[in-house]
Amino acid sequence: MSATKQFWAILRKDLLLELRSKDVFTSTFLFSIMALVIFHFAFSPNLKDLTPVSAGMLWVAVLFTSLLGLNRSFVHEKDEECLDGLLLTPVDRPVIFLAKLAGNLIFLIVLQVIVVPIFALFFLGGLTAVAALKLAMVLLLGDLGICGVGTLLATISANTRARDLLLPILYLPVMTPFMMQVVSYTNALIMGGTAAVDMSSWLYLIIAFDIIFLLAGYALYDFVIGE
């Protein structure tokens, strides 16, 4: 039984459960759309051009949407103690981490494929093809960091009674320095970039955070998933 087969088995099971229940997608989709609509109506009477504040609004929506999704990502495992069933199988714990992370990442990407064009319609005048590609890249890098930390912390909080409360308390402070880099880079990208700002340093920091988050999750998962 290879780790790859076990990875695909967990991922396929999680996707199938989500397709059946639509637990994560329904709540996160409605939340992100509502957030963008509210931001639009809050700012549009006062600002003619919403572009300068759009990066912040996009990532606020993504961050809180992901929080909602991460909180739900262990619902099926806690139901009927299915997590015990999973832990009884001869699977290395980091494989569970990678499969759960992949599942969370897929949910977030699918959501963004629908929500980001709506965001662009509301807030962006127009992006060049290169800027749009870079935006997709930074969204992917941001999602990777969010899901890396989020999967680890969602596992910790899922094992507690106050999981709805604990996850934001753990997750938001850890994400703050990462989100500062992501928002700064996205803002510079949307504004067309400026010579005064070295955008690459933000990008390197985002990639560094991603690597640290993924390695930490991979290395620590054995300790957090058990008890």
Binding site: K13, L16, L17, R20, S21, H76, D79, E80, E81, C82, D84, G85, L88
Partner: peptide, 14 residues
């Protein structure tokens, strides 16, 4: 090993 408990450890939506 096999383990049978009072919880059935089965996914309800599968």
């Amino acid at each position: 090993i096999g383990f049978i408990s009072h919880s059935h450890l089965l996914y309800r939506d599968l």
